[in-house]
């Protein structure tokens, strides 16, 4: 019983790391642009496939492949903004329309992957094989890498938002777009940067997901659904809240899998999601809306 709880918490941290990366970009985009980017799941998938391409065709170099993913998803984030989001921003019904347009984008991405890579599973070779066993708890090196890599990116993002000039501009726009405009911040520029950074974080999440699991064209769907829950739990738009939220959900998810069974883990999370939306829509860390 005790060891079950302990290993559930460790697995919860692994899942939480993945969820945090998957959710943080979504939250950032919501915080700044007040839009729900449904193409986010597609970008998670893209990240995984890009790293696969990198490793397959560049002779197995993880570092270069990782950089390739970051570069490509970042650039495609700009494309997403210029081609889909910006033209719809600021129009009436933009919230609904951007939801639909980004949903359409995710359909395009999924089907491009089916056409380009086929629907059969692909896999990324292991970064490190082997595992660590402590009593009845076992954790493999891949999972440890995820637990270590995720915080690096999350802290990096926090640092960027807090300390760097363009990051501070992002926060300024998120808090008060008009005020930011008065002090001379080009909000259009900030918007496109934000979406690109969100896309990059999705790509990184995709890499980590691809490392422990196989690649398939629809792989971004499930993490996206989890990310929505986490985003609300953390308080819509709060990056810090989202990170906490992700680890909380990760641990609850793992505990549910251990003690209730894998079938009901998801429905239980959805019931909690509904209760959260009804009872505390501002989330754990958000301000009341």
């Amino acid at each position: 019983m005790f060891s079950d709880i302990a290993s559930a918490i460790i697995i919860g941290l692994v899942l939480g790391s993945m969820y945090a990366l998957a959710a943080v970009g979504l939250t950032l985009v919501w915080g700044v642009l007040k839009i729900l980017n449904f193409a986010h799941g597609g970008f998670i998938t893209l990240g995984a496939y890009f790293v696969w391409v990198g490793i397959t065709f560049l002779g197995g170099n993880y570092v270069i492949s990782f950089l390739l993913v970051m570069g490509l998803t970042f650039l495609l984030g700009f494309v997403l903004n210029a081609g889909v989001i910006r033209p719809l921003q600021g129009r009436p019904e933009s919230e609904t329309n951007i939801f639909i347009a980004t949903l359409a984008t995710s359909i395009i991405i999924e089907n491009l992957i089916i056409v380009g890579f086929g629907g059969r599973y692909k896999s990324i070779p292991e970064m490190a094989s082997g595992s660590l066993t402590l009593g009845s708890i076992s954790i493999n090196f891949q999972q440890m890498i995820i637990m270590a890599v995720a915080p690096v990116f999350l802290v990096g993002l926090m640092y960027y938002l807090k300390k760097m000039k363009s990051g501070m501009a992002v926060r300024a726009v998120a808090q008060d777009a008009d005020g930011a405009a008065i002090v001379g911040i080009d909000s259009e520029r900030v918007y496109s940067y934000t979406i690109a950074i969100g896309a990059l974080m999705a790509g990184v999440a995709g890499v980590l997901l691809g490392v422990i699991f196989y690649l398939s064209p629809g792989m971004g769907g499930d993490p996206l659904v989890r990310a929505l829950f986490i985003m609300v739990l953390g308080g819509m738009g709060s990056v810090k809240g989202t990170i906490y939220g992700a680890y909380i959900i990760g641990i609850i998810d793992a505990l549910a899998r251990y003690f209730i069974g894998m079938f009901w883990a998801s429905p239980i999370l959805f019931v909690m999601f509904i209760l959260l939306l009804l009872l505390r829509p501002q989330g754990l860390f958000g301000v009341k809306v």
């Binding site: 659904v225 819509m236 079938f263 959805f270 019931v271 999601f273 509904i274 939306l277 009804l278």
Partner: peptide, 23 residues
């Protein structure tokens, strides 16, 4: 319960119902 919340929250709520029913 759901129509007391608005905007994007209504999307999430109905989205969650969809998945629970499917399960």
């Amino acid at each position: 319960p759901a129509l007391r919340v608005r905007g994007i929250y209504l999307v999430f709520l109905t989205f969650a119902f969809h998945f629970i029913m499917l399960s």
